[in-house]
Computed example of a mutant assay.
Amino acid sequence: MYKVLLADDERIILEGMAEIIEWEALGVSLIGKAQNGNEAYDKILNNQPHIVITDVKMPGMDGLELIKKVSAANPSVQFIVLSGFGEFEYAKEAMKYGVKHYLLKPCNEQQIISSLEEIIAELKQHDMRQKRTAHLKHELDHIRSFAADQYLEGLIAGVAQLSPPPSLAGKKVRLLIVKGEQSIDSAVREALGSALTAVCSSGDWTVLAVEENAAEKAADVFTDYQMAISQTGELRHAGQLFRDTVEASGDLHGSAVISKMIRLVADELANPNLSLKWAAKDMLFMNPDYLGKLFKQETGEKFSQYVTRVRLEHAMKQLKIRRDASVSDIAEEIGFGDNPKYFSLVFKKYTGLTPSEFRRKQGGASAG
C-alpha cells in the first residue's frame, strides 16, 4: 500500500482532505499531516511517503522549498501541489522538479482523487518494471552462473578448445580445491557473493574459482575440510592450475604434505617469518587450520613446537661444534634475526641454561 502525507497550514483544509477522501479505497494509507513545511520535511524523512499533497504557501518552509529539498534527498517522492489564484509562477517552478499535478484552490475531492489515481497507476507501473527487471537479472545471473560452472568443469576435465563466456574472458582467479564432494549451497554462495566465479565437482574434489583477492575468505568457509589453494591465473588456465596445485599438495594426501612441511622448515630455518600461516598460505597454498590439524595428527606435535625444537636442536649442535661463533650469529641462523636476547630466553626455557652456560658446560669457550 502506498503512503500519503498531507501538508497545509490551513487546519480546515488539512482536516477536510484527511476526512473526505477514502484513502484505503484508492489503495493508499494516510500516514501523516503537517501544518508547515519544516514539520512536513521531518515527517517525510522519518516516514518515507510515496506521495505528498502540499500547499504552496506555508510558514517556515514553503511548498516549493519543500519540493526542492525532498527531491534532492529522495527523487522518487511524487507531489500534488495546491495553490491559490495568481500563483502560476510557483507552478512553473514546481514543474522544473518533475511535479505534474498542480491543483488550483479551492479544489474538490474528485480533482485530488484523479491526481492520486494517476500517480498510483504510474507507481504501480514503475514497481512492475522493477520486478520484471529484478526477475530478468536473476534469470540472467542463473544462466551466467550455469555457463561459468560448465566452462570450469570442462577445463578441469581437460576438454580442449573451450571458449570462455564473454564476461569471464581474461578473468583472474585462484582455485580452492576441497577434498570430497561438498554441497555449495545458497549460504556458501551468499558468503562468497560475486567473488565466487564458478564451481564444479571433479572426481574426489570440489573446485571453486574465486576472485584472486578473495581466496582467504573462501578458505575460511571450508576451515574443517582438507583443501588446497592454487596460485593466481586466468580462468582459462584453470585446468593447469588445478593439476599443478593437486600435484604440489601431494594429491592432498596427508603424509606427502607433512614431508613438504618438514623440508620447508629445514630450508627456511633462518627465516624469521617461518610460521604455520606463512607456510600454509604463501608456500603450500593450503588452509592454515586444516594444515595445523594434519601436522599434529601425523607427528603428534604442534607445528610451532616442532619449529622451535628443530631450531634449538640446531643451535645446541652449533654451540658445541663452532666454538668461535657468537650467540648472535647462531640466533640469526635459526630465525631469531637481530634479537639474541629473546633467543637466549627461549633457549633457557628449553634447556634450563643460557646459550653461554650451555657452551661452558660443553667445555667450549663462550663467544658473544
Rank of each mutant, 00 (worst) to 15 (best):
E117T: 12
Y41T: 00
N46K: 09
L82T: 08
L64V: 06
E118A: 12
Y41D: 02
A72C: 12
V56A: 01
K96Y: 07
D62F: 10
S114M: 07
N108D: 14
K68Q: 14
L103E: 07
P59W: 10
F85W: 14
Q110N: 13
M58Q: 04
Q48F: 09
V70W: 00
K43A: 03
L116V: 08
D42R: 15
D62I: 05
S114N: 12
E87K: 04
Q78N: 13
Q48R: 14
E122Q: 10
V52C: 11
A91S: 14
K105L: 04
I53T: 14
P59S: 15
V52W: 04
I53W: 02
V52P: 05
I113Q: 00
Q48K: 14
E87R: 12
G98D: 02
E65R: 11
G63I: 05
L66T: 02
N47W: 14
Y90G: 05
D62E: 08
Q48P: 02
I53D: 09
E39G: 06
K69M: 14
K100I: 01
S71L: 03
V70Q: 01
S76I: 10
A121Q: 14
F88M: 06
E117Y: 04
Q111R: 13
V52F: 02
E89W: 07
D55E: 10
F79S: 06
V81A: 07
A72T: 13
V56S: 01
Y102S: 10
S115I: 10
Y90D: 06
K57S: 13
Y41R: 05
I113W: 01
L116M: 06
K92A: 15
P49V: 00
E117L: 14
I67S: 01
A40V: 08
G86N: 05
K68N: 15
K69F: 06
N108L: 12
C107N: 05
E122R: 12
N46V: 06
S71E: 12
S71G: 15
N46G: 06
E39R: 04
F85P: 07
I119K: 02
Q48I: 14
N47G: 08
F88S: 01
H50T: 03
P49E: 00
I119V: 06
